[in-house]
Amino acid sequence: MMNSSNCTQTDLKTYYAITYTFILIPGLIGNILALWVFYGYMKETKRAVIFMINLAIADLSQVLSLPLRIFYYLTGTWEFGGPLCLFCFYLKYVNMYASIYFLVCISVRRYLFLIYPFKFNDCKRICDVYISIVGWVVVCVCCLPFPLLRRQRKDNTTMCFVDLPVQQVDLPVSIAMMTIAELVGFITPLLIILYCSWKTVLSLKEKNSASRDLGEKKKALKMILTCALVFLICFAPYHISFPLDFFVKTKKIRNGCIQKVISVFHVLALCLASLNSCVDPVIYYFTTDEFKRRLSRQDLQDSIQLHNLSYVRKHSREALRED
């Protein structure tokens, strides 16, 4: 396709800066609170708490890199060296696919505990730890092509993130890479979450369910459907724009107007994907009774008093030892 001179490129860096600034404080406070709450009731429940902790860690790692991104998009200059630029660029995709992985794990775990309570009730928490470790390793390895296909120009080391040029890749290789990424990173996880949702809805229609079981099923369905909703809102637009943007950056799509439309859509999709970092803590609050209870005024006061009491006792013992 011929390049069109009628469409001028728009500088979209301001939109990145505004979105990341909006996400920074709520994401930081929300995910720190989430880790504090999950640590507090980790021994009380087996309902996917390990996966929620890992999801909060993934979100927090993304949020902690946002100040550098905001600085770059406001100033247009990267002053922190090439390795840190590529690491922050890589971290964004690790966060996104780790979030996808742990949202799937949460949905599957809630579904299995609900449908097969006796079979999976004795599943030790160490199983979830191993699943989480494997997930982090797989995600970190599979996300390596993102920084490897980008590079800083030797004559201009002040560029980073969206301005990093993409290495040229043959069309067949590009299509193969995009197909694998979409199947493994989006379509398969989406089908798994939708399957868990469908099976949970069917279980609600069973006539022989006790009232207690019915309540548990509704809670599980609420969690699974929320995961599916966040998945669709935050990650579906990105996985639609991702292959199109890659073909634009590798010059496979040359029409100027089409390039502009795809670039704008990709920016919006990336902003929605980043929004996941501050949406997840809201999910925990509205779908997890323990989370809501822990953040209630009375429980929060009790936790603070208990922490202060432990602190005083610790220092009293240290003072007695010195005497």
Rank of each mutant, 00 (worst) to 15 (best):
K46D: 09
T250H: 00
G135Q: 07
L295S: 04
T10G: 07
S132A: 14
R110I: 11
I233L: 09
V248D: 02
P83Y: 15
L164A: 05
L268P: 00
E290S: 12
V141S: 03
M177W: 01
V261S: 06
T250R: 00
A319Y: 09
C123R: 15
L272R: 04
S99L: 09
P165Y: 06
K252S: 00
S61P: 10
I283Q: 04
I283S: 04
L86F: 05
P281K: 03
S211F: 09
R297E: 06
L12W: 12
A58H: 03
L320V: 13
V134A: 15
E206H: 07
C142G: 07
V264Q: 07
S241P: 03
I133S: 12
L33E: 04
D128M: 12
I23D: 00
R254S: 13
C196T: 02
F89R: 12
S310E: 09
I192D: 01
D299S: 11
V264R: 04
T250A: 01
D128F: 14
C160I: 01
L24D: 01
L270D: 05
F38H: 13
S263Q: 15
N208F: 11
K314C: 11
A17I: 01
L202C: 08
T14Y: 08
R313P: 10
Q167Y: 14
K249Q: 07
F102H: 02
M1L: 05
L74G: 05
C234Y: 02
A176R: 03
W78E: 04
D11S: 05
L270M: 13
L114D: 02
A236K: 11
I180W: 13
D213W: 06
L194G: 03
F51H: 12
I70M: 08
C105T: 08
